[in-house]
Design a protein around this nucleic acid. Structure first.
Length: 624
DNA sequence: CTAGGGTTAG
């Protein structure tokens, strides 16, 4: 009887009338630090300067709220003689929020030294702190503490442990924690799913997803975005379809993932649908989502719509600017990209390193050599941004494309960091364009050894040899590829019609309307022949870059897609094709003529950029 | 107190 009374009685040091005092409750509803400081001094005058409850509230506001001030929180914290676990937890969360994970861990050990026992709210933040700087040793110790203090069944602690091991890429450990949990929830499952997928085990992630008992929209999105991030867009679409059938809410994260899927495929109609859904469902258009939409329109070949969304933004984030500039660059509109870049600065948005990658690549794609050089110079001199490898890569590309191979080589030798495959690859590409075998051979071999699994590098070197008739060397490269088991990426083209994605592979016959399509190709070629088309048979033999040379040139996937587009659309409609490799020379020539003879605009997205074919001309001005 | 989304050259 007595013991129960003791338990129910309020301990003497907490039994002040302060809960009735208004300044304490006012602290939570503060909106500025000035307001808070006033309340803080009132509370001190009431004699509560050492009171954990009162100071805990003050610290919580300073450390965690949007208008807080971690420095002030720390000052208050330092005055506390016996801060309790809540206060420690709060300051640790504050450190985490300010991206000071190390301080968070240090504070945890201080907490232990001060003999304050961590509670179940302590571990989520400390474990997350370990994640953010790969503190594996500390993480394992914390795991032991969690168990020792009896939180082996606490969902929050356990889920954070799973998350931590996932971050460390220790799937076995993550799995062990998961399997030991007496009760798992959606968070545990979803964390495991993203873990498997981030380690490259997307199929295993899907198996887990299927086993999961109660899927919510976060779990659905985790799986969908796993597919998107591993370029498995069709599976993303299929899962999305299933999700819609099961009436799961489409929220902004899901919308973002599906927009990326559309971007990946170049599926404009589907992308428009998601965009429309966002508008009519009132999903909040934050700056991330806006950027995703803009990117979708840019990469699906619709710059007008991208601009429409971009111009409609009241607050344009740096990513939105970057995205738009990059979009213009991809479409070969170098001058417009530069113009937008200047406008961005007039709007007082400071460019970052990504901005410069895009600006430099805009110059490279449009042959604006001097402008590019000037902007490269200005990075340090005007903007105080140190050029990175990517920027050197852009410059090598810029110079190389323009035929200034010697300058490009010189730039590489002057780079303050060692050139990566990207930089060397840009030079190799330039050697291919300008037929410089000597330099190309040297760079090509280096690049292949740096990235022996990348088929594109072998193909490029083989092409270089083929262009000058060094067939023996071509054969050697091919043999090397075979010996190492490196497979060429098969080429395909896609055209979306009425929201349906149609994919073609060179010489393929999987499409239900194969016969009609091939007939249309033949008709198409007959028509452009009379307009002067001569098949680039040289390319058939030599150009291993694009699609299997065994496949007849006439039936490259791009031509099949165009033929299908002509069959299925009305006169005057623009055809939009996207493909996974670069446009080959012959398809490029054919597309130009088709655009003229059939009076159709054709927009082709290739691996690197866009080609707008119109009245017999291409927007790339054959500079690609 | 825990899980899901954006912009980066070749």
């Amino acid at each position: 009887m007595t013991s129960l009374q003791v338990l129910q009685a309020t301990p003497p040091h907490l039994s002040s009338p302060k809960t009735q005092i208004s300044p304490l409750r006012g602290i939570e509803s503060c909106s500025t630090m000035a307001e808070l400081k006033q309340l803080h001094s009132q509370v001190i005058r009431l004699g509560l300067a050492a009171d954990n409850d009162a100071m805990g509230r003050v610290i919580k506001f300073c450390a965690l709220s949007k208008n807080g001030d971690l420095g002030y929180a720390l000052q208050v914290f330092d005055t506390m003689l016996h801060p309790d676990a809540f206060i420690y937890n709060t300051v640790m969360r504050g450190y985490l929020q300010c991206h000071l994970p190390r301080n968070c861990i240090v504070l945890y050990s201080q907490m232990l030294q001060d003999s304050v026992t961590p509670n179940k709210y302590t571990f989520p933040s400390v474990l997350r702190a370990c994640c953010s700087y790969d503190a594996i040793g500390e993480g394992k110790q914390l795991h032991a503490h969690v168990v020792k203090l009896g939180y082996g069944a606490d969902g929050f602690c356990q889920n954070n442990l799973i998350h931590m091991y996932v971050k460390f890429q220790s799937l076995e450990e993550a799995r062990r924690v998961f399997d030991k949990m007496p009760r798992t929830d959606a968070v545990s499952w979803t964390t495991l799913i993203t873990g498997y997928s981030q380690c490259g085990f997307v199929d295993e992630a899907f198996e887990i997803f299927e086993l999961m008992p109660e899927k919510n929209s976060v779990s659905w999105n985790a799986m969908i975005s796993s597919y998107v991030q591993s370029d498995r867009f069709h599976e993303a679409f299929a899962l999305f379809q299933r999700m819609r059938v099961e009436k799961v809410e489409l929220d902004k994260f899901m919308a973002a993932s599906m927009l990326s899927a559309c971007t990946g495929l170049g599926a404009l109609e589907q992308g428009k649908w998601i965009h429309g859904y966002i508008e009519k469902s009132g999903i909040e258009l934050d700056s991330k989502l806006a950027t995703t939409i803009i990117d979708m329109y840019c990469k699906c070949g619709c710059l007008e719509k991208a601009f429409e969304v971009f111009n409609g933004l009241s607050h344009k984030g740096i990513s939105s600017w970057n995205c738009m500039i990059g979009g213009l660059a991809m479409h070969g509109k170098g001058e417009a990209a530069i113009e937008l870049f200047e406008k961005m600065q007039r709007d007082m948005v400071a460019p970052d390193n990504i901005t410069f990658v895009n600006v430099l690549s805009a110059c490279a794609h449009s042959g604006l050599v001097e402008e590019g050089q000037r902007y490269f110079q200005s990075m340090i001199e005007v903007h105080g941004i140190e050029p990175r490898k990517e920027h050197f890569g852009c410059m090598v590309d810029l110079l190389g494309r323009a035929g200034m191979l010697e300058e490009a080589r010189k730039l590489i030798s002057e780079m303050p960091m060692s050139p990566d495959v990207g930089v060397l690859g840009a030079l190799l590409g330039a050697c291919k364009i300008h037929g410089n075998v000597e330099l190309g051979e040297h760079i090509g071999k280096r690049v292949i050894e740096l990235e022996p699994e990348n088929s594109g590098r072998y193909v490029l070197l083989a092409n270089l040899y083929a262009n000058v008739g060094r067939w023996e060397d071509v054969a050697n490269v091919r043999r090397l590829m075979n010996d190492r088991g490196v497979k060429k990426v098969p080429g395909f083209s896609m055209i979306e019609l009425e929201g349906v994605v149609n994919e073609f592979i060179a010489g393929g016959g999987a499409h239900p309307q194969t016969k009609e399509i091939y007939a249309k190709v033949d008709e198409m070629l007959k028509c452009i022949r009379s307009a002067g088309y001569v098949p680039d048979t040289e390319g058939v033999l030599h150009d291993l870059d694009e699609e299997e040379k065994e496949n007849p040139l006439y039936y490259h996937s791009e031509k099949l897609a165009i033929a299908f587009g002509l069959l299925k659309t009305k006169p005057g409609e623009t055809l939009r094709i996207s493909k996974n490799l670069r446009v080959c020379k012959d398809c490029h020539q054919a597309s130009k003529l088709i655009s003229k003879v059939f009076d159709r605009d054709i927009i082709v997205r290739d691996r690197n950029r866009f080609h707008h074919f119109k009245r017999g001309e291409c927007s790339c001005k054959d500079y690609w």
